[in-house]
Amino acid sequence: MSFTSPFAASTAKAGYGSIELSILPPDTPVLRKVSYQYPLKLVAPDPLPPPEQKTNRHAPRLVHTVFLLTYGGGIVAGDAINLSVNLEDRTRLVLLTQGSTKIFKTPDPTLVSKQHMEVKLAAGAALVYLPDPVQPFAHTAFSQSQIYHVEGEKSSLCACDWVTSGRSARGENWDIHEYKSRNEVWDSAQSGKQRLLLRDNLLLDKHGRTGMQPSGRMDGYSVFGTLILRGPVFSSLAQYFMDEFEALPRIGGRDWGDSAPLELSPHEQRRAQRQIREKGDGLVWSAANVRGFVLVKFASKAVEGSRNFLRDMIAEEGSVAASFGERALLCLK
């Protein structure tokens, strides 16, 4: 007995997902589309109004949040995830994960798991992508790419990409076959030819003729990460990172005791405390202002060090929490 489904055949492919955020006239942002297919899962809780709505007339009425999940909490060898995100003008989206993205071991180094995300940001749209770190277990091969298409100077982006050395409690220390992570930002404002604005490509594999294990190349660090900041919404955060980098104590400098201990402002006290903690966590970081971006690179001996650093910096500055709500920092808690 044949059975004909009354529903249209699904066109979604395995691992594919799509998020579209639009404006319902006059000014209500709505998720026009949230679709996903196994092994990818998207969860969109109710949108919340941003805290700054009372003070800033231009703030959108609602900020949406979407959690990126995978069944089983990780990516199995051979999985391919493909997510496209489209943000219209005057919309704000927070992309989060629930726990680190685990990469499970592959039977064959050539079998590479993949995750690809393509984000289109209209001028005036803003995205916060502050996920938990990727955690590739021993003997894994993983390659991910995050491609952002922005329109001119007005698209705002705050994206973090960080990776850990594996299950350090089990003694794993970069025992991976291969890990690649690519972040690209393209300017599609000019019609026709796209222009590459930023490419941050991390390649951890057997190449390089160093004659060292991957762990040897890492100089004892267990976490590496990049934070990309761009656009008007994050300009104050970007400036904050630059200022704090400028205020870092000089490496190899000495305290001769001739600078009298001044009365520290609350901000300076917090800074001093954070710097002490950074030292304890073995965290090093640098910030660079290039091509309209502020790029923050950081590394630490343990995951908590980097997490503390990001949370402290972003929370102290406060503009992300004001524009997107406390939820945006969920993965850094």
Binding site: R182, R199, N201, L203, H207, G208, M218, S286, K297
Partner: peptide
């Protein structure tokens, strides 16, 4: 791409 991430730092 960068094969030695700590070099950037």
């Amino acid at each position: 791409g960068q094969s030695v991430p700590v070099m950037d730092l």
